[in-house]
Amino acid sequence: METSNHSIETQNLSLWYGDFQALIDVSVNIPAGKITSLIGPSGCGKTTLLRCFNRVNERYGNVTTKGEIKILGKNIYDPDVSLLELRKTVGMVFQRPNPLPISVYDNILFGLRIHSPFGSLTRSQSDEIVEEALTSVFLWDDLKDKLKTRATSLQLEQQQKLCIARLLPLKPQIILMDEPCSALDAKGTLAVEELMSVLAGTYTFLIVTHNMAQARRVSSECIYMFLGELIEHRETQALFETPEHPKTADYVQMRYG
């Protein structure tokens, strides 16, 4: 099956905020189990495209979408698609770490509690899930004694890792990241990048970044966007070393702007 290779496929996707067209005929296939990065100057539609994939854009009203988005082979604009299920499959990590202002423990279980019938999680199951999630983002040793502290009081790096950890109990297929490291220092950035490389394979990552060095370090495929259009989509190495499109060349060789 073709769909097994691609987690996300879009066909001529266009999107308008009111009269302003933010995405113009974007057709892209995102490979499964790899890290794909989206680069481009500010306002080129990277974040908009990312936000299309779990339909968080719709919350802002005044948004018109045309075209097709298939996630795991299923068109997400079909009427029978459940938003809840979609957002369970497609997790999202935001630019600014946004743990919910509740305890670390409850943060990790919040998603799962939404998606499971009331009272179906036993205490020991919950403990296990929390430990597993925190272990896979390398936070367990740091936080095992702080499970009851408010998540917003953690360090930023820990908060961002926690935001990744709370997606894991839902067993998502795809994790979208919107400049996940822009609020972190170099050490935090490195930690999150390492975490991504470990988790890639199990999950498909799509990451928006302004940091080209980061795109080069972590991603295996790279997409360059400019003014709402997809200019080039190739393997990262190739895109940076031998860009095909002059606009891409301008950008990756820092001649842009």
């Binding site: 779990n54 968080v56 919350r59 938003l83 809840l84 299920e85 979609l86 957002r87 369970k88 997790g91 999202m92 935001f94 600014r96 946004n98 743990p99 919910l100 202002p101 919040f110 998603g111 939404i114 998606h115 935001c163 709370r166 997606l167 839902l170």
Partner: peptide, 25 residues
């Protein structure tokens, strides 16, 4: 807004977002 975004992105419906997060905050 980040509280809402986080909860919505985890799949919470509006009712859960309001009851669990907006109201307590």
């Amino acid at each position: 807004i980040s509280v809402r975004e986080a909860a919505f992105a985890l799949g919470a419906n509006r009712w859960r977002v309001v009851v669990d997060h907006v109201f307590p905050n």
